[in-house]
């Protein structure tokens, strides 16, 4: 199968995300389509990676784990960038949609990042003989997870929804430094560690499987964020008193 085929699948999530600002309730109906595509993409990607890709010369069988590891870490970074965008959006417009989206993307990003990092450690054991290689990208990704765990902890510790939204938006905005660190750490630390290259250059046979899986995980991330966003909005409804509860205006003094 030519390696561009999975890219066709990309049209669905990208199209939906582009249409979302114009039609807010779009996902209420089509999230099942994305869920189906997530299952399909991850399924096909995993199948190809496990059964159709030949073992690699140096890494052998473990190279297959790349098809799950890299997409999850990439999508985690994407979720973190989304968190940054929503944080800025909140600071500028004070929108509760932005606040809920920021919380959801941080949580989903934390989940994907944790799984992705664990898979990276599993890959490292047979390849380099150790679970933890102190590879700068691996380590800074782990540090990023700690930051967003702290972000979520602060949200839990703050009772007033208005304050919580402002503070976490400030954290999310400042936090953009961290994905940049993850990205640049390899360059900064290269005097000590070898640069880790992407799987495309490491092993071309894996590319098709990798792309299926990456697009599947992208859809999965959108579905997760969407569902988590709905929960966040429900929680806000309980936590934030609606103006309707105020009743009619009182007479002027």
């Amino acid at each position: 199968m030519p390696s561009w085929v999975p890219l066709v699948l990309l049209l669905v999530p990208v199209g939906i995300c582009l249409a979302l600002p114009f039609k807010r309730d779009l996902l209420d109906k089509v999230w099942l389509v994305l869920a189906a595509e997530a299952v399909f993409g991850i399924g096909v990607g995993t199948y190809l990676a496990l059964f159709s890709v030949p073992p690699e010369r140096d890494m052998g069988e473990v190279v297959r784990i790349f098809a799950a590891h890299v997409p999850q870490v990439q999508n985690a970074l994407l979720a973190v960038v989304l968190n940054f965008g929503c944080s800025l959006w909140f600071l500028i417009r004070k929108s509760w949609v932005a606040d809920s989206l920021a919380e959801s993307s941080a949580e989903v990003g934390l989940y994907l990042g944790a799984v992705g990092t664990a898979l990276g450690a599993i890959w490292a054991k047979p390849t380099w003989g150790v679970y933890w290689t102190w590879d700068p990208r691996l380590t800074s990704a782990a540090v990023m997870l700690i930051y967003y765990a702290g972000y979520l902890a602060l949200r839990r510790f703050t009772d007033n929804p208005d304050t919580r939204a402002t503070w976490s938006a400030a954290l999310g905005t400042f936090g953009i430094v961290i994905p940049v660190t993850v990205y640049k750490s390899v360059v900064w630390m290269k005097s000590m560690h070898q640069v880790q290259s992407s799987p495309e250059t490491v092993y071309p046979q894996l590319v098709t499987a990798f792309r299926f899986s990456a697009i599947g995980f992208l859809c999965l991330m959108i579905v997760f964020i969407y569902q988590r966003y709905r929960i966040a909005q429900e929680q806000l409804k309980r936590e934030v008193a609606p103006p309707e509860a105020l009743g009619a205006p009182q007479g002027a003094a």
Binding site: D159, E239, A241, L246, G247, P249, A252, A253
Partner: peptide, 10 residues
Amino acid sequence: GPRWALARLT
């Protein structure tokens, strides 16, 4: 949070 401490005061 969930309660109004001041309600439509004029």
